[in-house]
Design a protein around this nucleic acid. Sequence first.
DNA 1: AGCAGTCTTCTCATCTGTTGAAAAGCGAGT
DNA 2: ACTCGCTTTTCAACAGATGAGAAGACTGCT
Lengths: 254, 254
Amino acid sequence: MVVRSAPGESVAFRALRLLDAFDEQHRVLSMSEVARRAGVPVATAHRRLQDLVDGRLVARRPDGRFEVGARMWHLGQLSRPTALRETALPHLQDLVAFTGHTAHVAVLDGIGALVVDRISGSRTLPTRHQPGGRLELHCTAVGKALLAFADEQLVAQALQMLAPVTPYTITDPRVMRTQLAEIRRTRLAPSRQEHRVSTTGLGVPVFSGRHVVAAVGLVAPLDASLRTAVEPLQRCAAAIGAAIVDRERRLDGD
Amino acid sequence: MVVRSAPGESVAFRALRLLDAFDEQHRVLSMSEVARRAGVPVATAHRRLQDLVDGRLVARRPDGRFEVGARMWHLGQLSRPTALRETALPHLQDLVAFTGHTAHVAVLDGIGALVVDRISGSRTLPTRHQPGGRLELHCTAVGKALLAFADEQLVAQALQMLAPVTPYTITDPRVMRTQLAEIRRTRLAPSRQEHRVSTTGLGVPVFSGRHVVAAVGLVAPLDASLRTAVEPLQRCAAAIGAAIVDRERRLDGD
DNA sequence: AGCAGTCTTCTCATCTGTTGAAAAGCGAGT
DNA sequence: ACTCGCTTTTCAACAGATGAGAAGACTGCT
């Protein structure tokens, strides 16, 4: 018996797990760093990393270290976040102009929400922040908006890890279930200090046909009333949904 | 004897080759389309595609078809093209403002140049140099600027496939070698109608330290003289290079 | 120079996960 | 009910994966 790790995972999947080693704080890694961070023996990392380089998802720099490759970006250009960013931007700007609050769009990615774009609500000059951040599903407005319309399988998984982030975070699966049902009914996901104290948020799902493909959200100080923002937010989400449907039809009928 | 294809390629690499099936015209594919386009049996595509979905580089839509996943975009945010786009943008704008011609930045990706960003000038010329587009190395200005500083291995490979795109395209490997040496010396890559008739281009490599990490290029009608654009173009490339070095130092010293 | 520590690459015996044809399931359209 | 195209599963043969350890390559230190 020589093999240790192999718990029935496929080789290709194990190779892809090496990509977990890369994040905002770790853009450039040596091979042994990748091995350590991904929890695999160096000999294995050596071979699988070579495959990723051959597939050009990872690039080897002149100094021998590794970084995410240009092809990853290229393929990413074909993905939903890229399309969303382009189609959603003008509508987000309208929303920010109207409400004055920070707005963002997110999509579901695994057990998390991936922020695709964000526009800050400083009335003077709307600045665009670095997208690419990840939000928890259970304690953010956009996260709950996405979770409410996700597969039962994913919901079940998410309900098993309701980590308290603030004293207001919902940690009881049954309470969350009730709230998700309410969100499905009203198509409106609130978050009062669940992710950050003194901050309130509001999320709305974006429909492309019958399916939710994204969520738009607003963030505001606790004392600000988001009551008047509800309707603009819903219109924004509807407009983005319509723009996406348009875009897909245009590409299909090409 | 049951196995046919296996020519000694690793499993992980073969899985990544399925990604070749996706491009601008084929963003959403059924499993059998992927299998056909990638040239693998459906049974194999079925399993490897599942791995890619598990690794979230590919997503399965409600209708059962596949598309590039959000995580590909997320990881792509960590790659050089993303960083380049941000750091190069202001300098590109200066360049366009000064010259009036369309400017673009590209990086090397495999045996091709990947256009990372493009800004059209007032004297706009419709080009194929769109962000996310791929350009041949041997017949475009930025392509030659990149090729001139690439590994000998890649150069040799590129010289074996000098396809004539216009009557002016260089197809003789020895002529190309000479020109590449000249480009290395002058750090200036011209392209007169080699990619498209009636169009001329000028490319300059971008150095980060001692290595070329990108190339900046201008495209103009044949009758426009790019003589006066040479110096601004070189300054632009130098400024981008400096900005990249700055950025890396900032991230390293974090 | 010599030494120690770390990183990358390679070898080897073992065996796990992959392979493609074919058949079974599934759905939509006629 | 039937066909056609697509997805999923089955099966036996086997190609390629595995991790420890050794060897090689660097770097920095004394």
